[in-house]
Design a protein around this nucleic acid. Sequence first.
RNA 1: GCCCAGGUGGCGGAACAGGUAGACGCAGACGACUUAAAAUCGUCCGGCUUUGGCCGUGCCGGUUCGAGUCCGGCCCUGGGCACCA
Length: 817
Amino acid sequence: MDNQYRPKQIEAEAQAYWEEQQTFRAQEDNGRPKYYCLSMFPYPSGRLHMGHVRNYTIGDVVSRYKRMQGYNVLQPMGWDAFGLPAENAAMERGVPPAAWTRENIAAMREQLKGLGFGYDWSRELATCDPEYYRWEQWLFTRLYRKGLVYRDTAAVNWDPVDQTVLANEQVIEGRGWRSGALVERREIPQWFLRITDYADELLEALDALDGWPEQVRNMQRNWIGRSEGVELSFDLAGRDEQLTVFTTRPDTLYGVTYMGLAPEHPISLELAEGNPAIAELVEEARSGGTAEADLATREKRGAATGLEAVHPLTGERIPVWVANFVLMEYGSGAVMAVPAHDQRDWEFATAYGLPIRPVVHPADGSELDVSAGAFSDYGVLADSGPFSGMPSDRAFAAIAERLEGEGRGQRRVQYRLRDWGVSRQRYWGAPIPMIHCAECGAVPVPDDQLPVTLPEDVAISGSGSPIKSMPSFYETTCPECGGAAERETDTFDTFMESSWYFARFACADQNGAMLDERADHWTPVDQYIGGIEHAVLHLLYARFYHKVLRDEGLVSSNEPFTRLLTQGMVLKDGTKMSKSKGNTVDPQELVERFGADTVRLFTMFAAPPEQSLEWSDSGVEGASRFLRRLHGLVRDHVARGPAPALDPQALGDAQRDLRRKVHETIAKASDDIGKRFTFNTAIAAVMELCNALGKAGDDSDAGRAVMQEGLEAAVLILAPITPHLCHHLWFQLGHTTPVVDAAWPEADEQALVRDEVELVVQVNGKLRGHVTLPADADEGQAREAALAEPNVQRFVADKEIKKVVFVAGKLINVVAK
RNA sequence: GCCCAGGUGGCGGAACAGGUAGACGCAGACGACUUAAAAUCGUCCGGCUUUGGCCGUGCCGGUUCGAGUCCGGCCCUGGGCACCA
């Protein structure tokens, strides 16, 4: 055996072995339970970054662990290949997005192979391949016919200088990132998917997704934002028109002191003609980006309209204001304001000197004070006509009933979730398969004309998608009337591709259909792994899409991902690695210097997967050092010849202690890797084991047998994490089949048994000593031993013992006063 | 602004069901080996201290025999906010 650990050589050999044996090629096999382990596929930016390495190492560790447990594992990989960066690169370097993307894919594929990830490459796919996106187009036309697709207007960021639509990230402080021009909001027609039709199912099914982090389920619940309330209308004095508003707090109806209109509301637009203050608000609303974070942090401003609304129950006149915090996108673009019981309304009322009228008092009878802020809890009504004295919940129902009875309102469920706008005015995306005909309107592209292929040999300028000025692309004939017509030139949101790739991996070679029965064999994904930043959008869209696929009869499960692991970010110097901060670490350099196993080991050791990971160069060296030591331990052991067979009955005390450590490590690592996903503590346990093995120095037959068992355990446990070195060491330890096919070790219960236990002794909850007792000692014996301890006696000497708390196997606490 | 997380030694982290705070690793100090350095191996490594202890898990308060862990309030950092992926 080589005297030195040479990762380069060992890793090349292992990778060649796996490739030659087609180790990771997955076949459907009903004789073994399937396990579909999927890491979120990358955007092919050109090089792997540490976030990818972390994500894919976690996935590979889980996959290899499950394989050792006897599962038939599928672990595929592909490319989320459409998107904005390719267009930016094209502008900078003059390379068409398609060529740039395919070069990046080739480079990153090699990097992934160099890291030793066990993917079934025969299933590789790229979303920019027409054979992939054609099925997305096919499904879209189907959903159109089903009524799940519709056209409506939506706001985009318009750069008036570059004459182009900008993404939110391209709007910096209200200005276009390249031109520096003030960005305008423009309403343009776009395609929408009715995700809100599935809102209730998406919400309710979260309760059963117990393999998902509660944090993510919570974020999705809040995003969907189901609320029950009342929709009611206020007459406008002197106008033949009504304001319809939605409120979740009809119990505060008597506290309404003003109405708020969105600046984009038709009435606001009308009044802006003759009112400079309103015109200014409308102007403000038209400029700047569309991102919610920008809108929500704007200073709250408003202007009186002079109009008055009529309170539906009291007939009182209520002033109508235009307010910039009222959003046209939500509900009707109008709100009733109750400053006493809503903080945002309170702030606006305070700023503009509008009355604050409390009508709900705390249920506990405590004094109500709204001088410093709104009281937004439920309580008991006051000054609310016939409803005074009712608790909020009863008043909610009573007021709703009254409004319904008078035909002025009705109970309604509202969602925060909006329908999914899938149109993008970009080039590098899947063409939306629709044709606009002057005679027939919007017509879906017939199946036999799919895919609508995106022309790839194009030049990208800073303003607008090239296919919008390419008659050879958009000129066509109407499939219905045969007349001249134009293709849709918008492309799909890239979330469309990433919403179903997990199913396509099951049957990536199927060219006659979107999916086949193999999709149902492999899905749902048993374990999905990816960044927490995808907690809402990608994961919600994919859930929606899966339900749509189900309703189309393409899969039969309800949810795409049974278990979800959201991995934290990779940081350096406490902040996110990024090119602009210049604090990136190139995984490729590390692999070349230390080997893939060291990079994998450090990444898994430095932090548990869900936490952020602080990068440390010296920590990487520590990981490398450990692998050298493990290599050395096996080398020295093997150099002494084959180890004799182990006879557990014939061990001395030290040998039994060491063997107990071996099996404790197996038990801990199995729990850490299999159940808790805390790979860092599993590695720490193996390090402890190796420290103990290294100190043993026992050359007796029994000692060498225990050593063999211990080294095998260490290699088996580390095999999913550092697969190349373990592949090598396993053969060195005398095995003839590869460790990748070995069974995961099981702890021997007999080896775990202890004769004695050490109890912690406390007095009044503070540590005062230790006592060693037989493992089966009862409370009486423990108490006797504890009180005999001299240090304990010092602390209880002049006190009365009130009680003794005994926790078997752990501690005994003497409470004395 | 809204929603969701996280704050533990010089650093990354451990403590899994409320029971020894700091496992494991990094950095550092000292020692061994060496002509020397690197590598390797060994010992020490939260603060204070009268050496008996006392203090210590972002801050303030509470529950408990016992709180890093549970509860209430605050501060700071990070993720998401619908066209980055």
